[in-house]
Design a protein around this nucleic acid. Structure first.
Lengths: 343, 343
DNA sequence: ACCATCTCCTCATACGAATGAGCAATAGAT
DNA sequence: ATCTATTGCTCATTCGTATGAGGAGATGGT
């Protein structure tokens, strides 16, 4: 009974049930009906399975069948956050939830991290990602080149977050910034604001571009005006910038990212300005706990949903039920009116 | 060059390098030196590997009995915490850090979760753990039976946390409660306490037993006295219990777990007691942020180190350099004197 | 010239499950 | 009685890698 050391295999069951391994496989795979195997034989097989506590060998199954049931999660940085309010955490929660639902396991690629703390796809001349059936890519990839190569190899993967460049043609799931900007600008316009300033980051990648693009589109649609956008690095953001914005005649400000929002909140406090009395503000990002900008009107990124959808998109991609250029945009929670008032 | 669709295998490399698949396997597995394969041949193989972007097939490797470089992480609950001060998070951080260092990848078993939200080892009739070379087990396993079966199958695994029952003979890494209790009781004795009460949980598993065992040993060594320990469920802990302890002549209290500590802190506040003037307290656990007991003298569990050591122990176990009954106890940070004073 | 020893490989097979092809035994039709 | 069809399986092979056994050819010793 106690199969000393070795896990029982189909041939063990076969011996006990008095059939061959092929028959065991047929019965267990549910093809028994089609192959017309009588109930009595099936029962003998199932009894032996129970008696020997048989469990299929995943390695053998996937070797034969091609799938391993493993989904890779490639992150640019460690996945387990040291800071508790980690941005990626809700995404990973979503990824795990969906993995549970679809009965796949997740592989965290830790072996690919260099001494610089950065994780590469191609390390030591090999691509460990291949271990998994496909992968979800998370965060800013440093090596666009690696991604191009990965795509050329036909490796199935899905990005989380808006992608530009060569990767724009790969499958991704991202927040719907166009709609998000409507939900940010509509209440501002309705409150009576006519001139709205834009404060963006100095690094202009695809997610930043998408936001500003949405901003311009909706400013035009609503008949509003806006000066030149300010794309500033964090340390270029100071009291002068805010003064300029006010002097310019803007009565509302749209801030692209939570970092400048936090800094702006500090400056605002120093200057003794009252938000939203002196200036209405909407942040196009989710502001973390503990930031002085926490209470401001802000977009809620659908982070958990991004994670979930990425996993299911990848599985659909593997099943061939979506093309490998498929994109999906998820709705963003509209901002509250906390830092919006009439000018 | 682009091997349309099919991933390259060793036989493809063999063809390019002008050798056989066996030779490729020898070279790649590092056994080349022992088998005296000249540098020139090895170089041809490596060149072909690079050209074809070969990556080993995990399923095949694991089926044949080789290593996959995958380490499983079996948790009882989801690994990505929804609460930000998750107890397991530091352990997982340690696990990931050590995985990076040892160049292995991690498999999070999500496929094994039932509808009840509980993860089983033998779920859906399969044991997915077998895909990985071995696994680290985390949290309270519900099915002792599954563990016995897994061990009988010779599957290599390492527990994090003290184990009892049949699993006591399996490898584990746990906090050193014996030393921890010395570091808790020594300062109390030194401060002049002679009678010390013990407040434990009603569920007595191995980690709880180890703490109380340490308590008894050091109370004896230091010539102290102690009444009967109180093993209470959380809702049995009320003001009466604290009154009893004081009436009993105890001037210090040792609390096993952070949950009762938190509750005790609330009761203490209600009763208007002053800690440590009226009662010195040491908690044998790490109290989370936000708990009113946060400032009390407490043990710091070496959670990150537990994670790191578990991974390296597992790898050592796989290498055969430690026996599969090996245990290791990690030192615990001694408590501060915040809630310790003279009686 | 012959055997022994090395060097550098190849051969063949196993791991466990899935599956197309095929076959013996029985039932039913003519 | 012979042919056909169906039932109920078995056989043999495949997936990709690892490995014990063995073998061809070169080198060295006597």
């Amino acid at each position: 009974m106690a199969s000393r050391g070795r896990a029982p295999r189909q041939s063990d069951i076969a011996r006990v049930a008095g059939v061959t391994q092929s028959t065991v496989s047929l019965v267990l795979s549910g093809r028994a009906v089609a192959e017309s195997i009588p109930r009595a034989t099936q029962d003998r097989v199932f009894a032996a399975v129970k008696e020997l506590q048989y469990v299929p060998n995943v390695a053998a199954t996937s070797l034969r069948g091609g799938r391993t049931g493993l989904i890779g999660v490639h992150t640019f940085e460690p996945v387990f956050p040291v800071a508790s309010d980690d941005y990626y955490n809700p995404i990973l929660v979503g990824i795990e939830e969906q993995a549970v639902e679809l009965k796949v396991d997740l592989v965290l690629f830790a072996s690919t991290q260099g001494n610089d703390g950065i994780r590469r796809i191609y390390a030591n001349g090999t691509n460990r990602l291949r271990l998994a059936d496909g992968a979800v890519m998370l965060g800013m990839e440093q090596n666009e080149e690696d991604l191009v190569r990965l795509a050329a190899e036909q490796y199935p993967f899905v990005f989380i977050g808006q992608r530009g460049g060569a990767s724009a043609q790969r499958p991704y799931v991202a927040p719907d910034y166009h709609k998000a900007l409507a939900s940010a600008l509509d209440p501002l316009a309705e409150a009576g604001h006519r001139r709205i300033a834009y404060l963006g980051e100095s690094v202009r990648r695809s997610p930043q571009e998408a936001r500003y693009e949405g901003f311009r589109a909706h400013v035009a649609r609503l008949g509003l005006s806006s000066g030149e956008p300010r794309f500033l690095a964090l340390d270029e953001l100071n009291a002068d910038v805010l003064h300029d914005i006010l002097r310019d005649g803007s009565t509302a400000l749209v801030i692209e990212h939570h970092d400048p929002a936090t800094r702006a909140a500090a400056i605002v406090r120093e200057l003794g300005l009252d938000i939203p009395r002196d200036l209405s503000i909407v942040v196009l990002d989710t502001v973390p706990d503990g930031s002085p900008a926490r209470a401001w009107s802000q977009i809620r990124m659908p982070r958990r949903a991004l994670g979930r959808r990425a996993i299911s998109m990848l599985v659909e991609l593997l099943d061939g039920s979506i093309p490998n250029t498929y994109h999906e945009l998820l709705p963003v929670d509209p901002p509250s009116t906390a830092s919006i008032s009439s000018p």
